[in-house]
Structures are given as structure tokens and as C-alpha cells.
Computed example of a mutant assay.
Amino acid sequence: MAALLSITAACGSGSSNDAGGSSGSGGLTDVTVGIVPFTPNAVLFLAQKNGIFKKHGLNVTTEKAAAPTPIVASMVAGKQQFGFLTTPVLVNASSQGTDVKCVSPIDGQISPDRDASALVASKDSGITDLKDLGGKKVAVVQLSSINLIGAQKLITDAGAKGTEYVAMPFPQMPQALADGRVDAAVITSPYVESALEAGAVPLAHPSSDLWPNGTIYCYAATANYLKENPKVAQEFHDAMVEAITYTKDHEDEAKATLVDGLGLSAEQAQAQVIPSNFVPEINTDSIASIEKVMVEQGAIKKEVDPADLVWNPQG
């Protein structure tokens, strides 16, 4: 059975004036969250729109980044208090001496039946199977991403050799596939739909194929910020748990926020699938599994205790 680390309430919710959190209007604490634009942002957008964050004492704004690594730098610099990180980026940061920890899930755990990301081949590449990717060029959002770790394992296990991986923002991938600048890509909603409509061939769903019901990303913060602002962290965590739980039964309402949040049409927004089982807990077994793959691939030298990568309000 997977080890699920649920962060229990150790501090009361409500308004907070911990060190490092600026006091906003109405006694709310202003926090900035770094995000990478993709469909699961709908849960956070919903928490903003419906006042869930305000209920927990927070005034939340977001800043977009092309990939998770710049978000780490922004949090270390104090420009962002929380940020979207994939599990490999979380592990890499820790192994390189930057202490960051998951505070809450993004949307729950990755659902094996609802994965909104896929490894797809370009329409004219002639690629129909993972083993065909030997010697081909595959786009991933960044070279330390969950997409690279997962795709590389599946492609290698299929017997393909010599695959080249290139970093590329998600919004650029559909056109790069259509132009033949890359042979394949690991691409997520809302951009994967554009690629598939243009004829891209789905080959696999790396994250859910390898880590069903796992934690492949989270909202994180630096250990220093968490130490100085435990009430803000608890409030953020509690708000996200409430938002994830609410979204489970109000998915259309959450997806509607993607119109303003990601610039989708109303029709495009409702066509999205939030790739979650809506379990608002961190699956530490899946983090350990991802670390093992990273060691096998030479991305890290040794594993980190998954419990050290998750914020514990008890200290």
C-alpha cells in the first residue's frame, strides 16, 4: 500500500502576519505562487475566484514561468512564496543543496484514467511505437522534468537507443511537431489537444503509466520560508486541500476558470480533463519510485528520504 503523507492541521487557519508574509488589504497575507500554465491550474484558479484562499487568510496572486526550475530561483530570491515543482525538480534541488519541500498537492494525485499529458509522435514522422524513437528528437518542457524522466524510462525499456531530448515550452510543441523540428514530444493539456487535432500519434502516458495515483508535482516552498511562516504554510495547504476536495464534485466550475487563467475559449476550457484522482495527499512511495529511476538514469547520485521533501508542520 502506498505511503500517503497527509499534513495535519497543527496551526489554526485565519489571518497571518508571520515574518516574510506581507499584510494585504482586509488583514489578508499576500503571497505569490509561481505556476507553469497547464490545465491543473484550474484548482488554484478556483480557490482564488471562489474566495477559498481569502477564507484561509490569504490573498494569492500568480506568476507564470515556462518551467519549474526558474520557480525555484524565484522562491529562493523571495519573489515567490510558493511554486509549482515537479518531483524530479524537487529532488534535484534538494540534492544540490537547495532545501525545498512540498506543501500541498496541485490537484490531487495523477489518475491512471485521466492523464492529460502524453508522449506523442508527429503526424509525418512514421513513428507508431516507442521503439521507433531510437535516434529521434523528443521535446520535453525541461531537461530535469518528470516528462524527461518518464519518457526516457519508457523509451529505453522499449529498446530504443540514441534518443535526443530537447527542452521546449509546452505552447511551442504543437507547431514544432507540425513543422518536423521534433519527432515527438511529451506535451500536456491544453496543448496536447492541439497536437492531436493536427494528427499527432499518441504513444504513451509516461506519468500515469509509471506512477499511477502518484505525486508527480506539488506546490512547494523553501525550508527557510516554511520555518519562518508556518501559519501561512498551513493556511495555503488547508486552502488547497479544500479546493481539491471541492473540485472533485465541481469540475466544470473549476475548468471555467481556464478561460481567464489560460486564455482558453469556454468550449476549450470545458473540453479539458483535470488529470487527478482528487486525493489531496502526497504519495511518498511514488516519490521514492521516481528517485530510483533518477538514480538509474544518472540524474542524481543517491536518493533522498521522501519524507524530507514534504513539509511537516510538526517540525
Rank of each mutant, 00 (worst) to 15 (best):
G26C: 05
S286P: 03
I106L: 14
E296Y: 00
A271K: 12
A158R: 07
T32M: 09
I216S: 14
H237V: 05
P212H: 08
L148E: 12
R114Y: 15
L210N: 06
Y217H: 13
L130A: 11
A67L: 06
C11R: 06
D285L: 05
V279K: 15
E235N: 14
T29M: 11
K137D: 13
K292G: 09
D18G: 01
I71A: 12
F53P: 10
A307F: 04
S144Y: 00
S22P: 00
K101F: 11
E296T: 13
V120I: 15
D107M: 09
T128W: 01
G14Y: 00
L46C: 02
G20I: 06
Y191T: 09
A204S: 13
R181F: 07
Y191H: 15
G34M: 06
E281Y: 03
A256R: 02
D157C: 04
G20K: 03
V76D: 08
D132I: 02
T69S: 15
T163E: 12
N277P: 07
N17T: 08
K49A: 13
G78L: 13
D124H: 07
S95W: 00
W311E: 11
T86V: 10
V72D: 12
G34E: 14
L133T: 03
E228T: 09
A198I: 10
I290Y: 00
P202W: 05
A269P: 05
E242K: 07
N213M: 08
I287R: 05
L210E: 07
D308V: 02
G298E: 12
A269Y: 00
S13A: 01
Q314G: 06
K64Q: 15
A9L: 02
K153M: 09
D107I: 03
P202H: 04
I7G: 03
T163V: 13
P105L: 11
P68C: 15
S13T: 07
G150R: 02
G108T: 14
I282Q: 12
V103S: 09
T156I: 06
G214E: 06
V201A: 11
S207A: 13
P174Q: 02
E296K: 13
A65N: 14
V273M: 05
V310K: 07
A256Y: 01
L58N: 06
L133D: 06
T86W: 05
Y246H: 12
A116R: 10
V232S: 09
D99F: 04
A185Y: 14
T247R: 04
E242D: 09
K123C: 02
P280F: 09
D129E: 10
P212R: 10
S94N: 12
D18F: 06
G298S: 10
I216E: 12
L196C: 14
Q234G: 09
L154N: 08
S189V: 04
N92Q: 08
A223N: 12
V192M: 08
L226F: 09
E303K: 11
P171C: 08
P230M: 08
I127D: 03
T29G: 06
V140L: 11
T87M: 01
D209H: 08
S122H: 09
G214Q: 07
N50M: 03
K301Y: 00
N213K: 13
D113P: 01
S289L: 05
